[in-house]
């Protein structure tokens, strides 16, 4: 199950953060997402396999915390997408698929003429779409 998703901007400023766990304070996810930026930076700055990861937007598992696993995805415009799940074993393909759809949703939200680049995404349409993607992620992993 997805605990939280986040979009982080070029300046490492949060653009969107949504937690999907009821009654859990969002602050924790803020901390988790924020800390995971360190790993993303590290992965970007010294890629282990240069040939492969140069063109790869999916960054894979960033780090496992006690309860969550954090995955990352970096767009060409240095927008970071972060996924926090409670599942201990997630299929890589599922995560990739999720990120592609998440990225597409973000691109559409950013194409909105009323969206200011670098500011928080407040559009409800984006939230709805992300919620759908998150729900379908749970479904596909169960199937």
């Amino acid at each position: 199950m997805i605990a939280s998703v986040a979009v982080v901007g070029q300046e490492n400023n949060p653009l969107y953060l949504q937690s999907f766990i009821d009654g859990d304070d969002a602050l924790k996810f803020h901390y988790i997402v924020h800390s995971s930026l360190d790993i993303i930076e590290e992965k970007v700055n010294n890629p282990k396999k240069p040939g492969v990861s140069l063109n790869e937007t999916y960054l894979g598992l960033l780090y496992p915390t006690e309860d969550y696993r954090v995955f990352g995805y970096l767009s060409n415009t240095k927008i970071k997408f972060i996924l926090v799940t409670t599942d201990q074993d997630v299929r890589d393909a599922d995560v990739r698929n999720f990120f592609h759809r998440f990225h597409a949703a973000y691109v559409e939200a950013a194409s909105n003429p009323f969206h200011v680049p670098g500011k928080r995404i407040t559009a409800t349409a984006f939230t709805e779409r992300v919620t759908n993607i998150v729900k379908s992620f749970g479904a596909s992993s169960l199937a």
Binding site: N13, L27, Y31
Partner: peptide, 13 residues
């Protein structure tokens, strides 16, 4: 670390 980085929830905390 947290101040003025846009992570307002954290810096508020």
């Amino acid at each position: 670390i947290f101040e003025d980085q846009g992570w307002k929830y954290i810096s508020d905390h």
